[in-house]
Design a protein around this nucleic acid. Structure first.
Lengths: 158, 158
DNA sequence: AATAAATAGTCAACATATTGACTATTTATT
DNA sequence: AATAAATAGTCAATATGTTGACTATTTATT
């Protein structure tokens, strides 16, 4: 009767949200461990993915940040470290001197290819107990939460 | 036909996992905005919650870290900053001189109470479109992912 | 054209996260 | 009892995340 613990004092709704946070942190840890073997961190890997999927393998630093929900100030350091390791190039946009363009290098592309298989295997293990219907249902629910939190965050900073 | 974008190049399974990451980050941002008004960060708030729910409002720093999945080295700085703001006390365990005990202060307890209503309201807004069945189903799926990622992480560091 | 406002990015300061080295204390082994 | 091993915690170095101040450039307004 006496023994209390953290989980018991959370409301059910709070448990749901904290579970999502914990799942995300676990997953980031899983992937970070893989990426580190290739010299990349989780956000660095994601920048490369965005550039790889962009036209000509390049994009504005601000656009990459917008896609990843990473603030501009944070992108500067991330991009500099990626450049130092030669995964990307940084160059000025001739058409607008304010703009910094990021471009993935051959080394960056090669590294992504080498990571791909191991990363996909990990995701398959994580989701192995889910049917396609399960995954669709889960994704739809998560999307609702993303929309709600995005709206809340906009309202709070305005 | 030409226009590529980031989302299209993700596998479906990857989309599911990245959506969870994004939802978690959005949620942490929502709550951080609330907590900041009371002088607390997201992890600081969670430490207070763990202590509040612990016997006598106190616990070993390592136990708090274990519950929150925060490495010990990280706990040191978090606890020091919480102590500086007088939300907690840090004291040595007389029975084992290696151990650091964290204890929530009255200021800490009061602050948690003041945060509670606003925080619960935000969570209710985020989950307002979900039935109880929806939330149960979601939580169960997320728990499966937590178990799978926990097992993977253990296997990778061993 | 000159000025004001908006946009893009960087930098500095600080909090948080992770790893590995290190100290101190306790427990186990010989 | 002396030594070895395990445990608890801190510290230093580095990366990441966030805010606010700042510079440079471009666009809008007068």
């Amino acid at each position: 009767m006496a023994k209390t613990n953290y989980q018991n004092d959370l409301t059910f709704e709070e448990k749901v949200m904290m579970a999502i946070v914990r799942a995300a942190e676990n997953f980031k840890r899983t992937h970070s461990t893989i990426f580190k073997k290739y010299g990349l961190s989780f956000p660095q890997y994601n920048i490369l993915r965005v550039l790889e999927a962009s036209d000509l393998g390049q994009n504005k630093i601000s656009s990459v940040g917008r896609i990843m929900l990473v603030p501009g100030a944070n992108m500067t350091g991330l991009a500099k470290r990626l450049e130092k390791q030669e995964f990307i190039l940084r160059k000025r946009d001739p058409g607008d001197e304010r703009v910094t363009i990021l471009a993935i290098t051959d080394k960056g592309k090669t590294t992504l290819k080498r990571i791909e298989e191991e990363k996909d295997k990990a995701i398959d293990i994580i989701l192995k107990d889910f049917t396609e219907t399960d995954k669709n249902g889960l994704l739809n629910k998560i999307k609702i939460i993303i929309r709600a939190t995005t709206a809340l965050n906009k309202g709070m900073t305005r």
